[in-house]
Simulated assay, not measured.
Amino acid sequence: MTSSTPETPAPVREEIIAHYAQGREDGRLRGGAGRLEFWRTQDLLRRLLPPAPARILDIGGGSGVHAAWLAQDGYEVELVDPVPLHVTQAGKLPGVTARHGDARALPDADGSADAVLLLGPLYHLTERADRVRALAEARRVVRPGGPVVTATINRWSGLHDLLNLGALFDEDIRARMHACVEDGRNRPTGRAPLFTTAYFHRPEEVPAEFADAGLEPAGQYGVEGAVWLMGGVVGWLDDPAQRAVALAAARRTESEPSLLGISSHLLTLGHAPA
């Protein structure tokens, strides 16, 4: 049986497609401080996903940075993304099937995936109803009891990042980031857009959205913890011994409630009703 959400969702915003069409996303997690997000996400997924071989639906999976190692681990990976460049890039990866699609309206059959990843879509859906709709689609296509794992950007990540970089001392940038902290909406305006259209969650918002979509929240994990804000992080990641210590430190505090909001990204785990 195949079913889908009856109403066609509004197209993904043009500025979001244009942002990712520049092709920078493919290298973002492969070097510099971005490796912290990559390795920590990999560590978490290896603990949260069912064992291979299992069918993983990687919705909004970008160029396939995570799909590539999942396929190497023995998973059957199908990647769905609204950006044509990403579909082309991911489609060249061994063991990965890639197609164009929207997280809010999937053609996949009910219960056809063993696990569903939403590591990008939720922070580009600025309306709560759209986010719940994407989560409801993930619940529909995952098998009963199967896991759904999402990534969100934390509400204060932009503020901390720009302060760390020294950019927050610019009055225009500071005003835009303060507005984002107030309502969670990142707007690509001003003389130097900081990012494309996005929504930055408070940690407690995500389980509520899961519940409204019919998913049972099961855990939250700070990806970078406080490590990403420390000046020596790139050097630590370059050195295998120091990297192991830094990753272990982030793992040790990953689900500490008082620290969830300090991380740049948050993974939330939920399950479809059994």
Rank of each mutant, 00 (worst) to 15 (best):
M1D: 14
T5A: 13
T8Q: 14
R13N: 12
I16G: 04
A18S: 12
H19V: 08
A21E: 15
Q22C: 05
E25A: 12
A33R: 07
A33H: 04
A33F: 06
W39T: 13
W39P: 09
L49C: 05
P53Y: 02
A54C: 03
A54S: 14
R55P: 03
H66Y: 08
Q72H: 07
D73S: 05
D73R: 06
V77C: 02
L79I: 04
V80H: 02
V83Q: 03
T88W: 10
G91Q: 09
G91I: 06
K92A: 15
P94A: 11
A98C: 08
G101Y: 03
G101R: 02
A103N: 02
R104S: 04
L106E: 10
D108W: 09
A109T: 08
D110F: 00
S112F: 06
L118A: 06
L118H: 05
L118W: 03
H124K: 08
L125M: 10
A129E: 14
A134S: 13
A134V: 08
A136P: 09
R140T: 06
V141T: 04
R143M: 05
R143F: 03
V148P: 06
V149D: 10
T150K: 01
T150S: 12
I153Y: 05
L163K: 11
L163G: 15
L168E: 14
D170G: 04
I173H: 11
I173N: 14
A175G: 06
R176T: 08
A179C: 02
C180F: 11
T189P: 00
R191Q: 13
R191W: 07
P193E: 12
A198W: 05
Y199K: 00
F200V: 05
V206H: 00
P207Q: 10
F210R: 08
L215F: 02
E216N: 07
P217F: 02
A226T: 14
M230N: 11
G231A: 11
G235N: 11
W236K: 08
D239G: 04
R243V: 09
R243T: 06
A244M: 08
A249F: 14
A249E: 13
R251E: 15
S255R: 14
S258W: 06
L259A: 10
L260G: 05
G261A: 14
S264E: 13
L266F: 01
L267I: 06
T268G: 10
L269D: 14
A274Q: 14
